[in-house]
Nucleic acid binder design. Structure first.
Lengths: 337, 337
DNA sequence: ATTCTATTCCAAAACGTTTTGGAAGTCAAG
DNA sequence: CTTGACTTCCAAAACGTTTTGGAATAGAAT
C-alpha cells in the first residue's frame, strides 16, 4: 500500500493539514510536532503523490524537450551531448526532463499543444530552430515559457542561446584559404534549418572576401549523418574538378567525407583538407583528428536549462540573447595544398 | 485561460460528467451529444489536464529512465542510440519518457524511491546493471514494474534484454587468434558493471581455449571513454613487450586505443589490431573502420520499452529473458600479425 | 474578570478529472 | 395504464495534496 498524508495523520493523531504543513516546514507547527511527523513519515516511507501535488500547486518542475527527428532516430552525438548538459543542470535545479521525439509536422505540433494545454511541463527547450518555426509562434501565442537553442529568421523576440555560425565559418574558410585552398566544397545542412542559414552565409561571405568564384565553391546538401556526408562527398570527389578542401557543416558529415576520401586512397590533411563543425567528443579521436569549430554543447545545454528555469520562476534574465563565438580547432585533417 | 471540462459543459449546456464521457466515447452518450461536445472541445482548444487525469486514473503513461553517470556526463553515443530506440518506440505506444541522470549511490536510490512512491512513472527501464544492484532489489521490494538492459549477478528473477557478451568476446578472440595473435591486451570496463563481467569472462575463456598464458593477456580497466581507452592503451603499448592486438570492451575505448597507436606511428590493422564492442554508428566511419561486435542498440531500446509496456498493462511476456548474440563485424582495424 | 496576542492546530475547500450509482424520459409490450 | 427495457443524462464522490480561514488554548496585559 502506498503511504499518504492520511496515514501519517492517523499514526500521529494529528490532522492532515498539520501533517502537510509540518512536512513543508511551516512555522505554525510546533517543533515537537514537526519532529514527530517527520519521524513517522520516514518510518512509513512516505513521499508525496506527485500528481496530487501538481494538480494543487499548478506547476510540474518538469521541462519539456521534443527532439525533432529527421528520419527514424536522433542518435546524433550532438544531441546526446546537449541532453547531458540539460539533464545534469536540470537535476541540480530540481527539475526533470520530459523527452519526446517527433518528426517536424503535425504530430509535432499536437505534442506541443497537448503538453501546454495539459500542463505537462512548466516550459520548453527548443532545439534545431527552423526558418519558419511554427513551434515558436505556437509557444508565443500560448504565452508559454521557452528558451531556444538557435535563432529564428523572422525577427521574433524570444530568449535563446546560439553559436555564431556565420563567424565560425568565416574563421574556418580563412584558415583554409590561408593554407592555399582555392576550390572549397561545402556540405550543407538542410536549408530549412536555421543554423544552416548562418553557417552557409559565413561560408559564402568569406568566399567573396577571398575572391573565390561560386563555381569553385560547390555546395551540396546532406542530411547531417555520416552516410549523408559520405554520399555527398563522393559526388564532390568524383566530379570533373574536385575541390581541394571540403568544409562540412557538422562533424558527422565531415567523418563521412573523410571515409569517402580515404576510400579513394587520399590522405586526409595532405591530399585533401576536410573540416567539421561542432567538435563532438569523437572529433578529437578520429583519424586524422578533425579540424573543426568547437562549440561547448554540454555547457550550452546547461545554460539553456538555467535560463528556462529562471524564466519559469519569474526571475529576470541577465542575458536574454546569448551568442557564443565558436573556436577554431586546427587539427590534422586540414593542411596546405 | 486554460479550458477545462467545466467550460465545455457550460458551452454545451451539458454536465461535466456527460462531457467527460462524450470525450471518452462512452456508449451511454448519444451520437449527437458526442458530436456537439467534440466540436466545442475542438473549438475551445481543450486538452485534458494531465495531472488531474493521472491523479484519478492512477497511472501516468510515462516510463522512467535514470541514466547512471560515472563522471559528470553521459554523452556516450551508446546511450543516445539506446535512448533513441526507447523514445521512438515509447512514442508509438503512447508513452513518455522521464529521463534523469544520477550517479550511482544514495542520490540515485532516493530518485528511484521518490519516483515509485510519488507514482511519477508507471515503470522503469534499468540500464547498465551492476553486480550488486540495489536498484533491482529496491524495485522488486516495491513490486514496481521494470525491465533491465543487462543481467544481474545474483540469481534474481526479473525480465531483461541483454547481449551475450561472453559469446561475443569468444568469437572475437577466436578471430584474433586465427589471425595469428598470441599476445592480446584487453581494455576492460569498471568491474562492478555486469557487462564487464560477461565480456571479460568470454575473453578469459577463449584465451584458455587458445592456450594463451595470462601473462600474455594483460587486462587494464578503463572508464569507457575515448580518453580512458587512450590512456590505458598507452600503458599497453609502452610496456616492455606490447601486445599485437588490443580488444577493447567498447567502441569508444577502442577509438582511444587507435589514437594511441597511431600517435606512435603504427598502422592500425597492420602493425596492430584493435577491436571494439557495441558497433556504435561511428565505428563504420572511423579510420580504419573498426572491427567490432554489433549489438542492435536501437532495437534493444525498442524491445525493452515494449516489454515494459506489456508488463505495465498486465499482458504476459512472450519472452521474459532475451539474450541476443552479438555479431562479429570484421573491418579493417584487425589484421594478421 | 476581561481583552489581546501568540501559538498551535484543523475542517473544509480547492485543483480537474473519472467513476459510481442512480434518475428521467421514451417506447413497446402486456 | 402498467411494466420493463433501453437510452441518455447527471450529482456527487473520489483521487491526494495544499491553502484558506478560522478555532482553541494559554499566557500576558489591562
Amino acid at each position: 500500500m502506498v503511504v499518504k498524508l492520511k496515514d501519517i495523520a492517523d499514526a500521529t493523531g494529528k490532522s492532515i493539514t498539520t501533517v502537510s504543513r509540518a512536512l513543508n516546514d511551516y512555522d505554525d507547527v510546533s517543533e515537537e510536532t514537526k519532529a514527530l511527523v517527520n519521524k513517522i513519515a520516514k518510518e512509513l516511507g512516505y513521499s508525496p503523490n506527485t500528481w496530487a501535488q501538481r494538480l494543487q500547486k499548478q506547476h510540474t518542475d518538469t521541462l519539456g524537450l521534443i527532439l525533432p527527428t529527421f528520419g527514424p532516430r536522433f542518435s546524433d552525438p550532438f544531441f546526446s551531448e546537449l541532453l547531458a548538459g540539460i539533464g545534469n543542470r536540470a537535476a541540480q535545479l530540481g527539475y526533470d526532463i520530459l523527452v519526446s521525439t517527433r518528426a517536424p509536422g503535425e504530430e509535432e505540433e499536437i505534442a506541443y499543444r497537448a503538453a501546454i494545454q495539459g500542463k505537462r511541463v512548466d516550459g520548453f527547450i527548443l532545439v534545431r530552430t527552423r526558418r519558419q518555426d511554427e513551434r515558436i509562434t505556437l509557444l508565443q501565442e500560448s504565452d508559454f515559457p521557452f528558451v531556444a537553442f538557435g535563432r529564428a529568421e523572422e525577427k521574433l523576440d524570444f530568449p535563446f542561446v546560439d553559436e555564431d555560425g556565420t563567424h565560425g565559418m568565416k574563421v574556418l574558410v580563412r584558415h583554409l584559404t590561408a593554407l592555399g585552398h582555392k576550390k572549397i566544397g561545402c556540405l550543407a545542412p538542410p536549408p530549412e534549418l536555421m543554423f544552416a542559414h548562418y553557417r552557409l552565409q559565413g561560408f559564402k561571405e568569406s568566399l567573396t572576401e577571398a575572391g573565390i568564384q561560386e563555381s569553385d565553391a560547390p555546395i551540396l546538401v546532406g542530411d547531417l549523418t555520416q552516410r549523408g556526408g559520405y554520399e555527398q562527398a563522393c559526388k564532390l570527389l568524383d566530379s570533373a574538378s574536385p575541390p581541394t578542401a571540403i568544409a562540412a557543416c557538422n562533424d558527422l558529415m565531415a567523418f563521412g567525407a573523410m571515409s569517402a576520401a580515404q576510400e579513394r586512397g587520399m590522405v586526409v590533411g595532405k591530399d585533401i583538407s576536410i573540416t567539421g563543425f561542432d567538435d563532438i567528443p569523437m572529433a578529437e579521436y578520429s583519424h586524422p583528428p578533425l579540424t573543426t569549430l568547437h562549440q561547448p554543447i554540454y555547457e550550452i545545454g546547461g545554460r539553456v536549462c538555467e535560463m528556462l528555469v529562471k524564466l519559469i520562476q519569474g526571475e529576470a534574465l541577465k542575458e536574454r540573447y546569448v551568442l557564443l563565438k565558436p573556436e577554431l580547432l586546427v587539427r590534422q585533417s586540414s593542411g596546405s595544398v
